[in-house]
C-alpha cells in the first residue's frame, strides 16, 4: 500500500529521471564524432610489438595501463581487509563450525565435487598462465581457482583456512607487485611498464606477462577465498 504523498514523490522522481534520459539522448547524437577508432588502430598496430602479448586486453592492463591494475589490486586488498575487520571473525580461532551442514548437502553433490575439484584447479591455472595468448588472465583465472578451492568446503566441512595467513600473503603480494612495476624505472627509465627492454625481443618480454598474471591471479584468488570464509564464519 503506497500513501498518496509517497506516490507524488515517486511520480516526480520518474519525471526527473526521464529528464536525465532526455539530456543523455541529446548529448549522444554527436557521440560518433567524439569517439573514434584511433585508439583501436594504435593498439592493433603497436600492441604486439610493444608488449609481446597477443591478447590486446592483457597488453593494456599489464603494460599500457599498469597503474590502473596496481590500484585495482590495492582496492581489492582494502576491501578484503575491511570485510575481515568488520566481521567478528576471531583470527586466532582455528576449528570453527561452518554454516554448511553435512546432513543437508546431497551425497551426489559431494561426490561430483571430489571429481571436479582437480579439473577446476587445473583449468584455472591454465587460464592464468595463457592469459597473453588466449582469452583469460589473472583476474578470471584467479576467480576460477578460488571457486575450485572453495568447493573443498563441500567435500570436508572440517577443513579450515587460516585467514590471518592469507591476509599477510596478500599484503606481501601487493608489495611485490608494486616492486616489479617499479623495476622498469631502472632498466628502461619509465615508470610502470615492462622491465624487460623491447630490444630483447618478444620471447623475453613474455616472461614479465607470465609473472604479473600469476601474481594477480594469486592475489584475486586469495582475496575471494578470504571473503567467502569470513561470510561462512559470520553465519554461525
Amino acid at each position: 500500500m503506497i500513501r498518496p504523498s509517497s506516490l507524488i514523490k515517486r511520480i516526480s522522481l520518474v519525471f526527473l529521471l526521464g529528464g536525465v534520459l532526455y539530456f543523455f539522448i541529446i548529448s549522444f547524437t554527436d557521440f560518433k564524432e567524439i569517439y573514434n577508432s584511433a585508439g583501436k588502430d594504435f593498439f592493433l598496430l603497436n600492441g604486439l610489438l610493444d608488449t609481446g602479448s597477443r591478447n590486446l586486453v592483457t597488453a593494456i592492463y599489464l603494460d599500457y595501463r599498469l597503474f590502473d591494475s596496481l590500484f585495482e589490486a590495492g582496492i581489492l586488498l582494502i576491501a578484503v581487509s575491511g570485510v575481515m575487520w568488520v566481521s567478528e571473525h576471531k583470527i586466532t580461532e582455528k576449528n570453527a563450525n561452518f554454516m554448511l551442514d553435512k546432513q543437508k548437502t546431497p551425497e551426489l553433490f559431494i561426490t561430483f565435487s571430489r571429481l571436479l575439484y582437480p579439473v577446476m584447479l587445473l583449468f584455472g591455472m591454465y587460464v592464468v598462465i595463457n592469459g597473453h595468448i588466449s582469452p583469460g588472465g589473472g583476474f578470471q583465472g584467479g576467480a576460477i581457482i578460488a571457486t575450485a578451492i572453495l568447493i573443498l568446503y563441500y567435500i570436508d566441512i572440517r577443513k579450515t583456512i587460516e585467514v590471518n595467513l592469507i591476509l599477510t600473503i596478500e599484503k606481501f603480494l601487493f608489495l611485490f607487485l608494486f616492486t616489479i612495476a617499479f623495476i622498469s624505472y631502472f632498466t628502461r627509465g619509465e615508470f610502470f611498464t615492462n622491465f624487460i627492454p623491447s630490444s630483447m625481443g618478444m620471447d623475453a618480454q613474455v616472461f614479465y606477462l607470465y609473472l604479473l598474471n600469476i601474481l594477480i591471479g594469486a592475489k584475486v584468488s586469495l582475496g575471494l577465498i578470504a571473503i567467502f570464509t569470513a561470510f561462512l564464519k559470520e553465519g554461525r
Binding site: V57, Y61, V80, V83
Partner: peptide, 27 residues
Amino acid sequence: IVDPLPQALMITTIVIGSTITSLALML
C-alpha cells in the same frame, strides 16, 4: 577487432564490484 580499451577497463570493474558488494553485505 573491437576496441580493447573498454574491455580492459571493465575487467577491473568486475573484480572491484564483487568485493565492494561483499563489503556492503557484511556491513
